[in-house]
Simulated assay, not measured.
Amino acid sequence: MTEIVPEETARFVRALGPDPDEILEEMDAYGEEIGFPTVGPEVGGWLQLLATMVDARRIFEFGSGFGYSAYWFARALPADGELVLTEIDADELDRAREYLERGGFANCAQFEHGDAIDIVDAYDGPFDVVLIDNEKERYKDAFDAVRDKVAPGGVVIADNAMTSGVQDFETLLAWAEGDDPAMDAGTQGIADYLGMVRTDPAFETAVMPVGEGIAVSYRVT
């Protein structure tokens, strides 16, 4: 993870957020061991809280990895809720299934192997929460694919809204402040996404500086 706030601030957020259970702690350790960039407990706690705040019953993820963010979401769902995980790596999806089964959430989870942008077409809306965490240059495509399936009062959450291993924060900051800098593909993808959701009249968007930054877009109409 690329830190965007001081470590003391991140520790404070972790200490006052929802407590992870033993499986989430195991998932954190696994992510650190293999160098997998999970959203971390600071963002995970916010995912759980946002899902709770909108009384989420249906959640869709564009990119689930081994199920870390999905596990946080699952803790906010009712027993008859639905959580759709998508992952291009079959081994990671199998590991996600194992973790959610152990946590008692397998009954609400759908595990889809393949490209999330293709998979979402097979699902009818509405979704109360959508997480976009696939390739940065495809964030805009993901939003286009799911926009009309987001319920009024629902939220779209995009991870890596500020930084990641494939984008440059200083360039993104210059763009946000009105400059027109040259961008690599990852940075351009995030800029295109943020520009689109901020000007969409159906959504209100703000960026939260936790983890590597999350953009939260609330559907108002």
Rank of each mutant, 00 (worst) to 15 (best):
V156E: 02
D148K: 03
D148A: 13
K140V: 15
D133M: 01
V155K: 08
K136G: 12
D148C: 02
A145I: 13
L173W: 15
F169N: 02
A161I: 05
D168M: 09
K149P: 04
D168R: 11
V146H: 03
D148H: 10
A158W: 01
F143G: 03
E135A: 15
Q167P: 04
V150L: 01
A158G: 07
A145H: 11
D159F: 11
R138M: 09
V150F: 13
V155R: 11
E137M: 00
A151Q: 02
A142P: 04
D144N: 10
D148T: 12
K149N: 05
K136T: 08
K140G: 09
T171W: 00
M162I: 15
Q167D: 07
D133V: 08
V150E: 04
K140S: 11
A145Y: 13
R138T: 04
N160I: 11
P152L: 07
N160A: 10
M162S: 00
M162L: 15
G154T: 02
V166A: 07
A142M: 07
L173I: 14
N160D: 14
A142L: 11
G165D: 09
D144I: 15
D159Q: 11
A174T: 15
E135K: 10
V146P: 04
G154R: 05
L172H: 12
L173T: 13
D168L: 06
V150N: 02
D148G: 13
L173R: 15
I157W: 11
K136R: 09
R138A: 08
V156D: 02
S164P: 07
E137C: 04
A151H: 03
F143E: 02
N134P: 01
G165T: 10
V146T: 05
D144A: 15
S164M: 03
G153H: 08
Q167F: 13
K140H: 14
G153A: 10
A158S: 10
T171P: 05
R147N: 03
D133Y: 12
K140I: 15
G153S: 02
V150S: 09
P152M: 00
E137W: 06
Q167E: 07
D159K: 10
K140F: 11
G153M: 08
T163L: 07
D141L: 14
I157D: 04
D141H: 09
V156C: 05
V166P: 01
M162Q: 00
N160L: 05
E137T: 13
Q167V: 01
A174H: 05
A151N: 05
V156S: 04
T171A: 12
L172D: 03
A151Y: 03
S164L: 02
E137F: 00
M162A: 12
L173S: 02
V155W: 04
N134E: 04
R138E: 10
F169W: 08
A142G: 09
T163A: 12
P152W: 01
E170Q: 11
E137R: 10
V150P: 03
V166M: 09
I157F: 11
K136F: 10
R138G: 01
K149W: 06
T171R: 13
A151I: 07
D144W: 12
A174N: 01
